[in-house]
Nucleic acid binder design. Structure first.
Length: 272
DNA sequence: GGATTGGTGACATTGTTGTA
DNA sequence: TACAACAATGTCACCAATCC
């Protein structure tokens, strides 16, 4: 058993310990049964304190439940091995926020690379070695999210903004990311993937300004544009049987254009 | 110089969602 | 229910940096 006051969260711990329904039920179960699964910890050198590797939520719940001592398994791991263990023990959780995943993957990649250097291994660990479930490319995308400002990360964690949108916005500098955040708040919307790509491209061409961001955000998204459509059989009887739908489309455009020109001529004649 | 790795772009495929 | 648009993800390829 270790006193709760001697336990510290792992430095750089990427996970949020939230007071939600899941946490409340954990607190209730600890209060009712008084049983807690042992935490995994490592000793902090030259102190009587321990860093939590696995069990940050259980520790938080125990504190809330008023418990002063918790069971723990003590492992003498170095900082890199501990970082890898922290990430691995949490990545298997069912509910994990995009920002948590992002910082977790980054923490693990840094630890693996540092381990490689420390052990004198040739080269770095590949991004493909970070996760069993995600591809290296996908991990790279998650790590890009660590370049997002906190406000944009919150939108992602709340499920209001897509991962791919966040990845594209992560290439903007901090000022422009905040400008996007302002535009999102004012327009009460989030950018689509296409809009985010446009912003990134304009930023690379040094053409992205706050005004441009507002202008892009105010534009209708492709799926919000009005459309005019006809059922093919409504029009089929007006065209030869060998006409394809593309032929019909072209023919209609020619007819509409001719009608437009006729009306313009009539208007010009009337004005004289 | 060749091998390895990280970072990224481009593109394809698949699943999801909103709309008519 | 069909369709289009969007989003997530994987694959391939390229370039630059680093190491041997």
């Amino acid at each position: 058993m270790i006193p709760v006051k001697n336990l510290r969260p792992f430095e750089g711990h990427p996970y949020k310990v939230l007071d939600n329904d899941e946490m409340n039920s954990l607190i209730e179960s600890i209060q009712e049964q008084g049983i807690l699964t042992p935490l995994v910890v490592r000793p902090i050198e030259n102190t009587d304190e321990y860093e939590v590797i696995s069990g940050h939520r259980r520790l938080h719940a125990a504190e809330k439940a008023g418990i002063t001592e918790v069971p723990a398994l003590i492992y003498a791991l170095d900082r890199d091995a501990a970082a890898i263990a922290v990430v691995d023990s949490n990545l298997h959780r069912e509910h994990i926020l995009p920002s948590e995943k992002a910082f977790a993957f980054k923490l693990k990649l840094d630890a693996l690379n540092h381990q490689g250097i420390a052990c004198g291994q040739v080269g770095h660990k590949s991004r493909d070695d970070i996760s069993d479930t995600e591809s290296g490319r996908q991990i790279q995308r998650y790590i890009r999210l660590t370049y997002l400002v906190p406000g944009l990360l919150e939108y992602m964690d709340d499920g209001k903004m897509a991962l791919s949108v966040g990845v594209e916005l992560s290439y903007l500098n901090t000022d422009l990311q905040y400008a996007v955040l302002d535009a999102m708040a004012q327009e009460d919307c989030t950018p689509s993937y296409a809009q985010a790509v446009r912003m990134k491209n304009m930023y690379r061409e040094e053409m992205l300004t706050e005004d441009e961001i507002y202008s892009i955000m105010c534009q209708e998204k492709a799926n919000q544009k009005e459309k005019v459509s006809f059922k093919a059989d409504m029009l089929r009887r007006f065209f030869p049987k060998n006409y394809t739908t593309q032929d019909i489309e072209k023919a209609i455009l020619l007819i509409v254009e001719a009608d437009y020109r006729r009306r313009q001529r009539n208007r010009d004649d009337g004005a004289r």
